[in-house]
Amino acid sequence: MYMVLVLFGVSLLIFFLARVMPGDPARLALGPEATQEQVASLRHKLGLDRPLYTQYYVFLRGLFKGELGMSLITKRDVFKDLIQRLPATLELVMTAMLIAILGGIPLGVLSALHKDRTIDQISRIFAFAGVSFPRFWIGIMFQIAFAYILGLLPITGRISGDPPTRITGLYLLDSLIARDFPAFVDSFKHLLLPSLTLSLSPLAQITRITRANMIEQLRKDYSIVMRTIGMPEVVNIYKYMLKNAFTSTLTVIGLLTGWMIGNAFVIEQVFSWPGMARYGVNSVLRNDFNAVVGVTLVIAVGYVVINLIVDLLYGYLDPRIRLKR
């Protein structure tokens, strides 16, 4: 119920905000030389000459039919554009988050276990750099090093040749389904640099929070008892301490995933990644009001769904939460 209310609130807010952006969308769609009559005709067609509440009602009605209105840039329904664009962003975000989790958690644990020693200092510098360096700069540096100088990885795009037959729109998955292994390897190579660049900041944050929580767990009585009775260190750390330390890391992962869906723009721009975030920013710059609303709604849905997953995972990690329910 709360989810529905949140989405309704977001749709209401963004719908009205998108309609007060400067510039006449009809004029922008038709080009500067279009006559006033033409502009008026398109405004009528788009319903822009109707009261805002009527426009919102029409928008909501369309939403239930899977229609988000015509994009003034691509001149097709925004829903179709999003279906085309979203998988690229999801593939990028999911891979980046996987790298961040697989890198950040072990690094955080290692850092906590070797607190204030060399490995911890290196990890802290890395975490600091990961958060501080601008992502576009890191992306361009990666391009220069790995693509331009070493020639190991492609500079831009999702794939060199023809994309695999579209099933999910996720090239890695689609190429596997089609058993097109060269396409899989090629897609993976294209994905590596952008996802690595996007993952650095989340990786640093996950490292920091895991380290802090693990240090806290290390000081707890149960952890000292476990060590005293001779419980193997690996079991103690990964089965008991990390599970307890993971709850707040999970919150951060959830928030970061939602954040990445909307903020992958810079990476998509630098690596010519045809994703939804780039589409969203271009829509704002070109006053494509239907597209702005569509992208914002998708990001909102993304946040809501991720929060739901995180809530469910809390229950798994902490039985007290499960039992309360």
Binding site: T74, G157, R158
Partner: peptide, 27 residues
């Protein structure tokens, strides 16, 4: 035919559209 012409063509020009990946490429 506006929807039809979103991603394909109906012309007689020197080239046809082989594939379109929105925001990425046209062949």
């Amino acid at each position: 035919g506006q929807e039809y012409l979103e991603t394909t063509v109906a012309g007689s020009g020197p080239y046809t559209v082989e594939s379109v990946e929105l925001g990425d490429r046209i062949i």
